[in-house]
Lab assay of single mutants.
Amino acid sequence: MDPFVVLVLCLSCLLLLSIWRQSSGRGKLPPGPTPLPVIGNILQIDIKDVSKSLTNLSKIYGPVFTLYFGLERMVVLHGYEVVKEALIDLGEEFSGRGHFPLAERANRGFGIVFSNGKRWKEIRRFSLMTLRNFGMGKRSIEDRVQEEARCLVEELRKTKASPCDPTFILGCAPCNVICSIIFQKRFDYKDQQFLNLMEKLNENIRIVSTPWIQICNNFPTIIDYFPGTHNKLLKNLAFMESDILEKVKEHQESMDINNPRDFIDCFLIKMEKEKQNQQSEFTIENLVITAADLLGAGTETTSTTLRYALLLLLKHPEVTAKVQEEIERVIGRNRSPCMQDRGHMPYTDAVVHEVQRYIDLIPTSLPHAVTCDVKFRNYLIPKGTTILTSLTSVLHDNKEFPNPEMFDPRHFLDEGGNFKKSNYFMPFSAGKRICVGEGLARMELFLFLTFILQNFNLKSLIDPKDLDTTPVVNGFASVPPFYQLCFIPV
């Protein structure tokens, strides 16, 4: 058959498939802009700032609406009420993970971030239990974070109060905490193996944040037939998995079943207990991918939040002064901060919360999916439909947070200066898919920041009023603009 005829037939089939998918069930789905064949609503979305586009569309179609990214149908949730109703009140029905062709290629359905069903539930339950087990290797997770915080302070001392970009050092600290939990080992910041790991993690975040990856996920045929950065992403992930597998083999040879040292040991012990169960989800494949998931999810998000926190503290020296006064009063100079201190430091706690609220790190979270046909607000959402959640619409709700575009710790303080919780605080998402490392991340943010401010004054290279804190939105995360500062020993 003539190649031209084959091409026309293929394009015609794709067009018909697109029209059929977009028209099927439209009477039951939430409203939304009319999609174009094949490309859907992509032309109506700013790929570099999806969150802003969703906010604009919500003003037209309401808090629940339908979009098509290519052939992929998505239902968008915008605003606290619908997000709570879906992710919390109907948590089980909305607990699936959205379709990610690239991740599915890399992870093969294993791990904790992109798995679904029984596998996801069992691996998540085990990971939560293990991360909360403060007795691994007779050292609590808090001990590990405190140790890394001391190392971080010593690295900052080496800058000798000269101007520096904190990106690298602030990236090393949370990565080392995860390494300590998974591998029972922290690395020197100049260790070549550690630097290679950091390089792969950072490069992957840069790649994932590009519009090209959005295109690959919406048109998965590209993955096999086109060159691009997605190939580098898959190569980096394969490198990390190979490295983790080597460490798993080392653990198998040296493990003491009665004295687990780290996450890998705990997983291997669980595998041993379930070795007679042919349906067990505790396999080497799941261990390797879960460890890679924890490394990827637990490094860049925390380091970016820390980097943004220091920029905001530079911009608002009056806030920094209040935090340091609270540190001096509650902790002093002669001991290290600990998590028990947080309950006695409402202002510092409010500042950490406000940093996370203000920066809105992951504006749309990772997409969910419905696990069955769901009736939601008089609409029928078919099983498997991807759910896109606007966390921006919750964290920047102007009824809950007056002047949401302003950095103001009073958003989390009552009139008496006591810490005030808010149900709208969802930087880790909400419901059954809430970030498994939430507790660890909150511990790291509090301890790293208090250790830094206990030991250093922060000095800006320019007038604080002239510092730009506008986030650089890159399609996946909101990151701070480049800046330098000086760490002046107190």
Results as ranks from 00 to 15, higher is better:
residue 378 N to R: 10
residue 300 E to D: 10
residue 314 L to T: 11
residue 61 Y to V: 00
residue 391 L to V: 04
residue 343 G to F: 14
residue 220 P to S: 13
residue 193 Q to P: 12
residue 317 P to L: 03
residue 395 L to T: 04
residue 182 I to W: 00
residue 181 I to Q: 05
residue 421 K to M: 15
residue 152 L to G: 01
residue 81 E to W: 06
residue 408 D to N: 11
residue 257 I to P: 14
residue 48 K to R: 14
residue 298 G to C: 08
residue 344 H to R: 14
residue 197 L to S: 01
residue 445 L to S: 05
residue 250 E to A: 13
residue 160 K to H: 11
residue 107 N to E: 05
residue 22 Q to D: 15
residue 259 N to H: 10
residue 184 Q to T: 14
residue 473 V to M: 15
residue 193 Q to V: 13
residue 119 R to S: 09
residue 122 E to D: 11
residue 324 Q to G: 08
residue 359 I to H: 02
residue 99 H to Y: 11
residue 82 V to S: 08
residue 48 K to P: 05
residue 170 L to G: 02
residue 20 W to A: 09
residue 449 L to S: 03
residue 279 Q to L: 14
residue 461 L to Q: 11
residue 175 C to S: 08
residue 141 I to T: 10
residue 70 G to V: 03
residue 237 L to F: 09
residue 377 R to M: 07
residue 118 K to R: 12
residue 71 L to V: 14
residue 347 Y to G: 00
residue 178 I to G: 04
residue 230 H to Q: 09
residue 181 I to D: 00
residue 103 A to F: 15
residue 115 S to V: 07
residue 254 S to N: 11
residue 155 E to T: 09
residue 400 E to R: 05
residue 380 L to Y: 06
residue 396 H to M: 13
residue 143 D to T: 10
residue 134 F to H: 15
residue 137 G to A: 12
residue 472 V to Q: 11
residue 63 P to R: 04
residue 262 D to A: 02
residue 72 E to H: 14
residue 462 I to R: 10
residue 246 E to G: 10
residue 155 E to M: 09
residue 413 L to H: 04
residue 285 E to R: 14
residue 427 P to D: 02
residue 445 L to I: 15
residue 72 E to I: 02
residue 87 L to T: 03
residue 161 A to V: 07
residue 196 N to I: 11
residue 386 T to D: 03
residue 69 F to W: 14
residue 118 K to I: 12
residue 281 E to G: 11
residue 59 K to W: 07
residue 37 P to I: 02
residue 347 Y to M: 05
residue 218 N to A: 15
residue 119 R to C: 07
residue 35 P to R: 12
residue 401 F to I: 02
residue 52 K to W: 06
residue 272 E to S: 08
residue 430 A to M: 12
residue 95 S to W: 04
residue 361 L to K: 03
residue 178 I to N: 06
residue 43 L to G: 09
residue 466 D to G: 12
residue 383 K to T: 07
residue 3 P to V: 14
residue 435 C to I: 02
residue 413 L to M: 10
residue 244 I to P: 01
residue 347 Y to F: 05
residue 189 Y to R: 05
residue 377 R to I: 04
residue 159 T to N: 06
residue 311 L to S: 04
residue 255 M to R: 06
residue 179 C to H: 15
residue 75 V to M: 04
residue 295 L to S: 02
residue 360 D to Q: 04
residue 97 R to P: 03
residue 428 F to M: 04
residue 413 L to W: 04
residue 240 M to A: 06
residue 273 K to R: 12
residue 274 E to H: 09
residue 331 I to K: 03
residue 34 T to S: 11
residue 273 K to L: 12
residue 180 S to V: 06
residue 331 I to M: 07
residue 441 A to M: 04
residue 309 A to Y: 01
residue 438 E to H: 08
residue 197 L to G: 03
residue 86 A to P: 02
residue 410 R to N: 15
residue 71 L to K: 15
residue 244 I to Q: 02
residue 358 Y to N: 05
residue 292 A to F: 08
residue 13 C to N: 06
residue 407 F to S: 00
residue 77 L to P: 00
residue 373 D to I: 02
residue 60 I to V: 14
residue 219 F to I: 13
residue 463 D to I: 09
